[in-house]
């Protein structure tokens, strides 16, 4: 296509957009709806993932040792744990660090601190905080620790308590794992259905907009205009719908995420949608505006094709 034709196509696209004000308005409105749903899908995905992540990170295993357990034995056990493929990290907290953390946690509780001072000796044992790659892997690690204990038969018991063995805790972890897993799938399916429905509605709105121009397309063909020359302004118009709808959607997300920011942070823990939106703005810009432009261009391209067959 020559430069003159490109210029003409863009001019015609802009003019049609402007002159068919009401049709343009409704098309942009429908597209905002679609893009908004796509944006919401991204936010829900992020919130779900971060919450899951947060939850997984909290669900670790604490191995408490007796106060007289020799440090080298604990460190050796730590090393063998680290060698397991299921184990992501092992953090060693010595008796002194455990005491310091305890003091810090209870710094406003004078009574407890006083009681601690009166004891004179450090009553806390060392701790190994073990984190697995997957929630379901804690069973294997627990099994390993049991066998280590068996191996250490004859030696004095150094593990005082593994909080994983708490039956209630374990049941809760299992249940939460299955709930979040199903939530993830159900969420994904619902979001996919929503996106498909709104894309179909947008598609149909553009088809209706172009349907109202079918006689015009017919006349253009009879006057001798080429198919590409007739189709291009409609595609430009579709791109304009997408571009404007995308920008409006991005603007709309600003106050909405600002308003919901602290609430999401409190409720889901860890994620503030507003700061996430701001820090990932280029990504949102690309996805929202890109989807709008693509949807507008493809829908217009396909809708016009129908009426060019003469």
């Amino acid at each position: 296509m020559s430069w003159t034709n490109i210029k003409r196509v863009f001019k015609a696209g802009f003019l049609d957009f402007w002159r068919n004000g009401f049709v343009s308005f409704t098309s942009v409105l429908m597209m905002i709806f679609t893009l908004f749903v796509i944006g919401l899908a991204i936010f829900s995905g992020v919130i779900l993932n971060t919450t899951l992540q947060e939850f997984r990170e909290k669900a670790d295993m604490n191995v408490y040792f007796t106060t007289d357990a020799p440090e080298e034995n604990i460190l050796a056990l730590g090393e063998s744990l680290r060698a397991l493929p299921e184990v992501a990290t092992v953090e060693y907290i010595s008796r002194e660090e455990a005491l310091a953390q305890f003091r810090e946690r209870h710094q406003n509780d004078q009574l407890t601190l006083q009681a601690l001072d009166e004891l004179g000796d450090n009553p806390l044992g060392a701790v190994l905080n073990v984190r697995a790659h997957e929630l379901t892997q804690y069973d294997t690690i627990a099994g390993f620790l049991k066998s280590e204990e068996a191996l250490g038969e004859g030696n004095p018991q150094i593990i005082e308590k593994i909080n994983y063995y708490d039956e209630q805790h374990r049941a809760a972890v299992d249940r939460l794992a299955s709930i979040t897993d199903s939530a993830k799938w159900i969420g994904l399916i619902v979001i996919c259905i929503f996106i498909a429905a709104t894309v179909a509605i947008s598609f149909n709105t553009l088809r209706l907009a172009i349907y109202s121009s079918r006689d015009e397309i017919h006349v253009m063909r009879l006057v001798g205009a080429g198919k590409g020359y007739i189709r291009a302004p409609f595609v430009v118009e579709g791109i304009l719908y997408g571009l404007i709808a995308g920008l409006i959607t991005l603007i709309l997300f600003y106050p909405i995420t600002w308003w919901m920011g602290s609430a999401t942070e409190r409720f889901f823990g860890g994620i503030n949608v507003f700061s996430y939106y701001l820090s990932h703005f280029p990504f949102f810009f690309l996805v929202i505006v890109g989807s709008g432009v693509l949807l507008g261009a493809v829908a217009s391209f396909l809708a016009v094709r129908r009426y060019l067959q003469i």
Binding site: R19, D215, V219, R221, L222
Partner: peptide, 23 residues
Amino acid sequence: SRRMGDLRRKIGTVFQDFRLLPG
């Protein structure tokens, strides 16, 4: 189909219902 424009440009058409581009 892609050469149809060349043919139709050699024929001018006038219709009863005018068929102008309304916009």
